[in-house]
Amino acid sequence: MALAESGIQSAVLVGSAPRKRSRSRRWALLGVLPFFAYISIFLLIPTGELIVGAFRTANGAFTLSNLADIFHAPYPQAFEFSLELSALSAVMGGVLGFLVANAVLHHGVPRFIRPAFVSFSGMAANFAGVPLGFAYIATLGTLGVVTTFLQHLGLNIYPSFSLQGLFGCALVYMYFQLPLMILLMIPVIEGLRTEWRESASNLGASSFAFWRYVGLPVVTPSLLGLMVLLFGNAFSAYATAETLGVSNLVTIDIANLINGDIAVNPQDAYALALAMIVIIVITIIVYALLQRRASRWLR
């Protein structure tokens, strides 16, 4: 009798333990409910709406014509300019950022250089948008300080140069791309182990040979990955280009469509926004793949 009872008791205990845990887990999930509700209202549902909206007519019927509109003027030109601008500014910022990060970490460079560059990069990477646009109008606009300085030297950069052009705009984007690259690249180069350098040096390798056979092969995936990140960063930029007066950019086209100034077809805004999401998702996947590859050698 006693045995049976204890047996039943233990059975009850065994049965109740997981149930209790799952119930407490359910209660625990309640704790994150406000957060997920908030994210749903302000991020997930709007994103879902626009993805669905891209496939709907104004009346709500299914259509592919919104997406087809992407391939009609002026949008292909806007995409072309956006992609070129993002790529150019990513390569410029990426290459120079890599070289600067490497220089900052050189043993012979004075101690204060590194904190100076890191803190200044943190500041510059955040100095974007409208103020950055005006800063470059003051620098390289038609009346800009550097423009007039070069004029005194007998060098007229206008009209061949323009802040709305591909190179001019990429130069402006450098102000946030370069510091971002420096900040993200410093830890990567630090990951190159000192032993590798020393072994290479002991075997008689010059600095060039070290980079050619050890440094670059190890760093390349990170370098490319970060450039892809910079690409996505530039691709979603809007305020800076708007301030500079750039006209044919995807983000600016979207803004014009929802501003209601020219109510051509609000459905097009959905389609363009969806196209942007697709491009950014691709960049993030490429970035993640390159990062995984990079982690093979770097700590």
């Binding site: 220089a103 050189h106 003051a138 620098t139 300080v145 450098m174 102000y175």
Partner: peptide, 30 residues
């Protein structure tokens, strides 16, 4: 290794210019 190659200095100066020239221009222009 303590001798800094000259191109390192070039990149550092170039980056410093990229950072500082617009700020200087803003002050000057305003």
């Amino acid at each position: 290794r303590n001798r800094v190659p000259v191109w390192h200095l070039i990149w550092l100066v170039l980056a410093a210019l990229v950072f500082i020239v617009p700020i200087y221009s803003v002050v000057q222009f305003s």
